[in-house]
Design a binder for these strands. Structure first.
Lengths: 341, 341
DNA sequence: TCAAGTTTGGAAAGCGCTTTCCAATATATG
DNA sequence: CATATATTGGAAAGCGCTTTCCAAACTTGA
């Protein structure tokens, strides 16, 4: 139904080949006069090239797939923003998929596999995996991506993965976590509760390892390591559970306050968990940072408007998205890259 | 390079037509035995259908385009999340574009036009316009979308637009704003400063109209109406400017505190502006809500973890995204729909 | 002026699928 | 058992482009 190139060509009195050459960047450029005729015919008819047909003929789609966990999470949306930016400069469109959305049922990780398969089906020029990699990658995922790469597709992951040949944007999760602990200790804090994410998520696990490593360096044992979902609610619920585990849930657990001599700091595996933790603490009447301190990881943009400010390890999220997209869209580009806070 | 249907067919000893029929939902289903052969051949070879070729042959792409302003803004990312959800259930992929990203230069609105043109080029089955419509829509945009709709594409806008034939998801911006004012007045507040967004953005303007309408109903004149960008920074800066305009910038403007008898409430056109305003107020040493109150609009999910809580008009953002996508993806579906908070 | 070289436009062969016909079987009916 | 009727698989014509060849039309130089 839309007007096609054939019609433009006929309208301009030239062949299909010529029309194609003037309208879409070909190496051959028809004479100025002809070109003008074709252009105005296209303009007049409101011609818009069919990218699907072009993709088929050129065997490159101008699409880049981005897999995030939850686009509504500030961490991922900041990255997505950066990806979009870089995609635009390379004239690519972004295909977005979120793995937090229940697929047609199935085990966790199925959503990611489905997303990747969809992207492969659309023959995206590259796929960016921003959702945190799993400790045990799904072999089907690995197989699909390997084949994709073999066929000329590019894959970049944020953080290491078990996917051979994928380019990786290394993030200073472990080092950052350790550094954060060191900074907090310098501030005089020596009692920590670690709010860990799901163990199978590499990002979450590695950060906790970094925390523990940092603490070990200072000869400190954490008061506890509690696990929760990698979300605000996860941080909130885990914090509540922890407090309850401390004793009478009606009263403010004494251990959390200064009573014991030094302030306690809740060290969350990421900012949204930290924010959830703060909400939980407040709901129990604890003041932040007077009674309890809280630290996070990521420096999500929305922190800007939080008060009191969260102590956090700052990651250049948007820049990370941009870098990942650049790595993905540069045919012979960098195979790896790393970012620090 | 990837394995194609022809190869699967050859491998299974059947024709191309048969292979196509068993692998991709056709109305005709080959005999069970044959089907099995084809399926295992496909599995064995790791066949993934080329969606581009299918799109060309079927003249439907399974793509839906979503235009937002800034995906990193919680408002848009919540909507995007909803869109994704609905898209998944209709087996569609979402193509995302943000209009806040500088295109190849040009006037404001060009980014949206570029995004829409890209979507049209990819022949998305539908386009969802979530970025707030402009008071003066770009005629080129209108023309492109009209043609798109004529050609069978579906367009849905969040909030009314000047695009004929577009389906619209009406949002109770005006009514909600008025209702919010009424609720605040009931709480005893009678002095308001309106933090308006850019006048040319319909969403922003209509909300302010609703605020003014609500105030008029109570026979109240706002202390002031100040404009700023529709972002956290916009709310922040506008608030600071307003305070400065009140006099000695070093001191806390007396007019803002209870001194004058009743508390002042800053009424922002959306939540992110309100959050920015709160940050600005705090930076001047004002306590919220003790000294000044702040109200927003949208009820973005991230508000959950803000303290003190923001008074706001709650919009079902995610649901809105879902509805918009449903309207967009249902061929003969609802032409319009509306949501209230 | 003519051979050799250079542009330039067009015909046609794909790109990887879907789907319409057709022909060939298989099944049902008398 | 012959005929009518379903089923079933396959050949081939597209879907809307790009791009490789070709041939025709120009240049150029001697």
């Amino acid at each position: 139904m839309p007007v096609k190139l054939t019609e433009v060509a006929r309208h301009a009195g030239v062949s299909l080949a010529t029309a194609s050459r003037v309208l879409n960047g070909s190496s051959r450029t028809p004479a100025a006069g002809i070109a003008e005729r074709v252009k105005s015919a296209a303009e007049e008819l409101g011609y818009v090239a069919n990218a699907q047909a072009q993709a088929l003929a050129r065997s490159t789609t101008g699409l880049v797939g981005l897999v995030v966990h939850d686009i509504a999470d500030p961490y991922f949306s900041a990255i997505a923003h950066g990806v979009q930016e870089a995609a635009l400069t390379s004239h690519h469109q972004v295909l977005l998929a979120g793995t937090d959305i229940a697929g047609d049922g199935g085990s966790p990780g199925d959503a990611e596999l489905a997303a990747v398969n969809a992207f492969i089906s659309y023959r995206t020029d590259a796929i960016i995996l921003a959702a945190s990699r799993l400790l045990e990658e799904d072999p089907r995922l690995i197989k699909a991506l390997s084949q994709y790469i073999t066929n000329g597709g590019r894959v970049v992951t944020l953080g290491a993965s078990a996917i051979p040949e994928a380019r990786v944007l290394t993030v200073a999760n472990r080092e950052g976590a350790a550094a954060l602990v060191a900074a907090l200790v310098t501030q005089g804090i020596r009692r920590f509760v670690i709010l860990a994410g799901p163990h199978e998520r590499n990002t979450a696990r590695v950060r906790v390892e970094g925390f523990l490593q940092g603490l070990a360096g200072e000869k400190i044992e954490p008061l506890a390591v509690v696990h929760g979902a990698f979300t605000s609610k996860g941080g909130h619920d885990a914090t509540l559970e922890y407090m309850d585990s401390l004793g009478d849930s009606a009263a403010v657990p004494a251990i959390l306050t200064h009573d014991a001599g030094s302030p306690v700091c809740i060290l969350a595996a990421n900012d949204v968990m930290a924010l959830g933790a703060m909400t939980a603490l407040r709901s129990r009447g604890l003041a932040i940072p007077a009674d309890v301190q809280v630290a996070g990881f990521d420096d999500i943009p929305t922190l800007r408007d939080h008060s009191p400010g969260l102590t956090t390890y700052s990651l250049p999220l948007e820049e990370m998205g941009r870098l990942a997209a650049e790595m993905a869209l540069t045919p012979a580009g960098k195979q790896s890259h790393s970012v620090t806070g």
